[in-house]
């Protein structure tokens, strides 16, 4: 239900981008380029991007790492029994993910909790830091989310075969369905299994990109409207509030889907 709402909003955003895109390129006075914020540029060197060049994207990954260290290493350093503010935040996040893994993947899944927690934290910090003005949202890049989703996909598939052997294939052969239906379901299940990394990654990147782009579009309106700019600014506030929700929910969705895939690998029999 809620996800449908977000999808609809994103659809509207994309349509508006589609409509405004040509306008932006035609008139030079009224120029909105909402996608420029996603351009990756080298920070300390001129010229071409090599595979090792430190870019603005790498910088915000580094800031994310520092944020994680500040919150989760210095925030809980004292380890008080009655936690303070920072420690409470860290503990709530930790326990939240811990409980999610336990609820969905079971006791066996807890072995993989550090990996899932790593994914969640990196995505969460990437998303939230991306909401700062002039920042760079590295989770809006399909390359980043694609790698994350592929890592999940590949490791979960390998794990499924290692843990269950060929019985892992029973994930596709649904024994609870009537026999004539099973070949049809087999095709559907196989396709949906291999679509997983694509939907997993595009969902996150698309949400991040759309939200930031629409903020930029409204900001562009505000820049040329003079006193009338109050309307787009109010719209930015509204979209920003929605984005605050979306960034956390998308990190949550990515993590919970990882847990679901992990559970499929650990317990392939439906």
């Amino acid at each position: 239900m809620y996800y449908c709402l977000i999808f609809l909003i994103n659809l509207v955003i994309e349509l508006s981008l589609f409509v405004w895109g040509p306008v932006a390129t035609e008139t030079s006075a009224f120029e909105i380029r909402p996608m420029d914020q996603f351009i990756i540029t080298p920070l300390f060197s001129e010229g071409d991007l090599n595979w090792y060049t430190f870019t603005n994207q790498s910088l915000w990954m580094l800031i994310g790492l520092i944020g994680i260290i500040l919150l989760f290493v210095f925030g809980i350093r004292k380890g008080e029994i009655v936690p303070g503010r920072i420690q409470s935040i860290a503990e709530v996040i930790y326990v939240f993910v811990h409980k999610m893994v336990l609820d969905i993947a079971g006791q066996e899944g807890l072995k993989y909790f550090p990996y899932i927690f790593t994914l969640f934290l990196l995505i969460l910090f990437g998303n939230v830091l991306g909401l700062l003005p002039y920042s760079f949202t590295f989770t809006s890049h399909i390359a980043v989310t694609g790698i994350l989703a592929l890592l999940v996909f590949i490791s979960v598939t390998i794990l499924g075969f290692v843990k269950n052997g060929l019985k892992f294939l029973s994930l596709f052969w649904i024994s609870s369905a009537p026999l004539p239906l099973r070949p049809v379901l087999l095709i559907i299940e196989v396709i949906s299994y291999f679509v997983r990394p694509i939907s997993h990654s595009i969902r996150l990147a698309g949400n991040m990109m759309a939200g930031h782009a629409v903020i930029k579009v409204f900001a562009g309106f505000a820049g040329v409207m003079g006193l009338g700019a109050i309307a787009p600014i109010l719209a930015i506030v509204a979209v920003y509030g929605l984005e605050m929700l979306v960034v956390v929910i998308q990190a949550y969705v990515f993590t919970i889907l990882t847990c679901v895939y992990l559970n499929d690998a650990l317990h392939p029999g439906h």
């Binding site: 990756i40 991007l49 595979w51 990996y115 790593t118």
Partner: peptide, 30 residues
Amino acid sequence: PQLDFSNFDNQTFWLLIFLFLVFLVIRLLV
């Protein structure tokens, strides 16, 4: 810019590095 494939190697490299660092922090410290 997301569909500019020329910098995918750069993105992958740094992502893997920071993923590993975050994992180390979580596993060893947190």
